[in-house]
Computed example of a mutant assay.
Amino acid sequence: MHVRTLTGCLAAALLSLPLLSGQAVAAESPAAARVLTYDASGSAEFRSAVDRGAAIWNESVENAELRPVSAGQRADIRILADDGWPRALPTSLGKGTVWIGRQAVDEGYNTVRISSHELGHILGLPDRKPGPCSSLMSGSSAGVPCTNPYPNAAEKAEVEDNFAGAAGSRAVAGPVPVLIED
């Protein structure tokens, strides 16, 4: 019985493979994106800006995907609102805490740009100040009129490289987390 079941399973597996010139060909599958979960329950009035910032990164890169955390799970990224200046504390690549500070919002900075920028730090990107509005990581140096929440080609490529490989995870250099205050 055991041999017959094993033979049947083997035959079913072989029949399910596509054939090309009489040879079985295994289908190629792209490397899976590394899924990073975020908890925006503490982001107060900035919740929609946080979700939009995550969606922008999901539209922009393939090697990392930001998803809201499921109930009962521990998030890779915590996102909080406070009265200070926006900042991020990456603890390792794809993990850390983001604060969406009301001080910058009160000064007129765009909430979606802030969210996308701070998530960029968690994805391994440094500040690039001063910089033009076309650079997401130029942050506040682009000025209040800048509302661009999208990473440029170089920023996208850097995040893709950071998360290259099958659900890759390259550690952030340095053993001590560094607060990035924008």
Rank of each mutant, 00 (worst) to 15 (best):
V3A: 06
T5Y: 10
A11S: 02
A12V: 07
L14A: 10
L14P: 02
L17A: 14
L17W: 07
P18Q: 11
L20V: 15
L20S: 15
S21W: 07
A24D: 02
V25M: 02
V25E: 01
E28A: 10
S29E: 15
P30W: 07
A32K: 13
R34E: 08
L36I: 13
T37I: 05
D39P: 06
A40S: 13
G42R: 06
S43Q: 09
A44Y: 00
E45I: 12
E45Q: 10
F46N: 13
R47E: 10
A49V: 10
G53L: 02
G53M: 06
A54I: 01
A54Q: 02
A55Y: 09
A55F: 10
S60A: 15
V61Y: 07
V69E: 04
A71C: 05
G72N: 03
Q73P: 10
A81Y: 14
D83E: 07
G84I: 00
L89E: 08
K95S: 15
V98W: 15
I100V: 06
R102N: 03
N110Y: 12
T111R: 06
T111A: 04
V112G: 01
V112A: 05
V112Q: 03
S115A: 05
G120N: 01
G120E: 01
H121Q: 00
G124P: 08
L125H: 00
K129M: 04
K129L: 06
P130M: 04
S135G: 08
M137E: 10
S138Y: 04
G139N: 03
G139P: 05
S140G: 12
G143L: 04
P145N: 05
T147H: 10
N148S: 05
P149W: 09
N152D: 09
A153H: 03
A154K: 05
E155M: 03
K156I: 02
K156G: 09
E158F: 11
E160M: 06
N162Y: 12
F163Y: 13
G165Q: 02
S169D: 15
S169R: 15
V172F: 13
A173G: 08
A173H: 04
V178Y: 09
V178E: 13
L179S: 10
D182M: 02
